[in-house]
Amino acid sequence: MTDIQRAMRLEVDSVSKLYPSGRGVTEALRDVDLQVLPGEFICIIGGSGCGKSTLLNLIAGLDSPTSGEIRLGGAPVTGPGPDRTLMFQDAALFPWLNVKKNVEMAPKLAGRTKEEQSEIAQHYLDLVHLHGFESAWIHELSGGMRQRVALARCLAANPTVLLMDEPFAALDALTRDHVHDELERAWLETGKTVVFVTHNVIEAVRLADRVILLSNRPGQLKAVWRITLERPRHAEDLEVAEIAATITAQLHKEVSSRVRQRL
């Protein structure tokens, strides 16, 4: 590992998270250790309620761990920051701004000049193939286009780490395939570190360098798969399907163990 790689590394260091719930306390995460290399694409999978999204929120700094520490480039994460932008399932675009102004938000908040804002926004809109939609309003876009705007908006903050919380879960399969291609291309071009949460195993294998399975609540590291298939990949590739089948089997085992626990 070079010094630069070490410098930009994302480290999740024995992080636990408890939060108050209806009766008492819910343990969402227990002792999670994770190291993500710069430029690496990791996908986190697990049953619903296993703490995937909690972990992402902690990395984003929108919430803080009960114990343990999260570091980016050696510096502890203490709050939200544009070096770690989070992309949501529902895009969360700003309807009072047109497409381009949405993407300009991060550079604007960073104090860039008007010309720089426009230049940055245009660059990333072109990257996700939204040239020609700059002045469209958000409600005029399809679901897939909204997620591409959200991706461009996140990238325009020039984050070190891009965090994605089931961003394509609400899209139909065809649109999702298309957005996967866009994301993969944007990722290869920008070299961002990506932490991607999903419950769709094929999506994980299609996109990730590493797939990480979290156990049932409290979420703990359960398994890790390194995916070395060549890129660009496609969801319908045979190899993708084979690896996905293996991982799915493990995921089912994990999910059904919880069902048994409940029974």
Partner: peptide, 27 residues
């Protein structure tokens, strides 16, 4: 809550968060 989360996430805080995100969203 998504607007506030998105705004904070993109680097807005304090009065800027209100001016750029929360007040326009509430319009």
């Amino acid at each position: 809550p998504q607007y506030e989360r998105a705004g904070r996430n993109l680097g807005a805080q304090g009065w800027t968060l209100y001016r750029r995100v929360i007040i326009p969203a509430a319009l």
